[in-house]
């Protein structure tokens, strides 16, 4: 019984939140890794692309709600999402036209693209602020819980409760669908294979008749889609605040690098690794230990690090992985 209680506490406070957060990070890291693999630079504007995408989704959600359209038990944002993706993709493609294309034609060193992405980051940051401001918003509507604590207790008779918020379940479902579709696209379709070929060897791809500009456009569209989805899921799960999306850049980069930059499988693994470590290290384990080892009375909360230091966790994982496997867990650079 105590073991079951411990398990429920673990699932409720560690496993489920970490899985949802991990899925959000993984989607973000996938976008970063695709751009790194194909456009060959780390996109510092990715966090702000996520923020912009989410902001458009929120505005559209409000619009839909205003005219009385909702998705019933599901968040209205889900209806707004495809339109948000389209708008973000348009913005990102416009940015590529206006900024990156010039350097690509010149065969400019990738560091110049990194610099340019810092400029784009500023502009997108400003755009998002213009669009929606700097305040914190919650935009999840529909059913709040798939399973709430009381129902669970009544069902099982355990003193500990287990809650599954609908946004968490939604995050996992959407993430699985997106990842399956993305991998099917990259590994099974001609266009997806062309993207991987371009990432592997630009010249040979060109000589094989692959249109580089088409590959680049596809990449931006996919990255915009991933960023908007990741951002919206993160916002639904927690809340939307533009600055948080800038800060999430670190765990996302860490996830992408830990998994091996340029490697989509690695990005997903990295995302979950970072998320689970963050939650596990910052969670006070006293309750779980209390059930598992009732004879032991710990002095404190048994929390390894305060939640304020969750960024430190992604950083330490990053360092450890790089020290032992400099190319990341799944050898990097192979979209």
């Amino acid at each position: 019984m105590d073991f079951l209680n411990a398990l429920v506490v673990f699932l409720n406070f560690v496993f489920i939140p970490a899985a949802a957060y991990g899925a959000q990070l993984a989607l973000g890291a996938l976008g970063v890794t695709l751009i790194y693999g194909i456009l060959r630079f780390s996109n510092f504007a990715h966090g702000d692309t996520m923020a912009f995408g989410t902001a458009t989704v929120i505005l559209l959600t409000w619009g839909l709600q205003a005219i009385g359209i909702t998705a019933g038990p599901l968040p209205t944002a889900l209806i707004a999402l495809p339109f948000g993706i389209a708008l973000t993709a348009l913005l990102v493609l416009g940015t590529d036209r206006a900024v990156y294309k010039f350097y690509r034609r010149q065969k400019a060193a990738p560091i110049i693209l990194v610099m340019a992405s810092v400029g784009v980051m500023f502009v997108m940051n400003g755009l998002t602020r213009l669009l929606i401001g700097v305040d914190e918003y919650r935009f999840d509507d529909g059913a709040r819980f798939i399973m709430d604590v009381r129902t669970f207790r009544e069902m099982t008779g355990l003193p500990e409760g287990l809650a599954l918020r609908s946004t968490q379940a939604l995050t996992l479902v959407v993430a699985v669908i997106v990842v399956v579709v993305l991998f099917w696209f990259l590994n099974r379709t001609k266009s997806g294979k062309a993207m991987r070929a371009y990432s592997d060897n630009e010249d040979l791809a060109l000589l094989s008749g692959i249109d580089p500009e088409r590959v680049v456009r596809l990449t931006w569209i996919i990255a915009a889609g991933l960023a908007t989805i990741a951002g919206t899921l993160y916002g639904l799960d927690k809340s939307f605040k533009a600055f948080n999306y800038f800060q999430i850049l670190l765990p996302i980069f860490a996830a992408a690098i830990v998994g091996g930059l340029g490697n989509p499988v690695g990005a997903i693994a990295g995302g979950f690794l970072v998320a689970f470590s963050e939650v596990a290290v910052t969670y006070p384990w006293v309750k779980v230990v209390g059930y598992l080892a009732p004879w032991y009375e710990p002095g404190g909360l048994m929390q390894l690090l305060g939640t304020e230091y969750k960024f430190a966790v992604s950083f330490v994982i990053l360092i450890v992985v790089l020290l032992f496997r400099p190319t990341g867990l799944f050898r990097g650079k192979s979209v």
Binding site: S42, L250, F311, F315
Partner: peptide
């Protein structure tokens, strides 16, 4: 780059 980004936050 990533290491400095991280240490800055920390």
């Amino acid at each position: 780059a990533i290491a400095t980004l991280g240490i800055g936050e920390i």
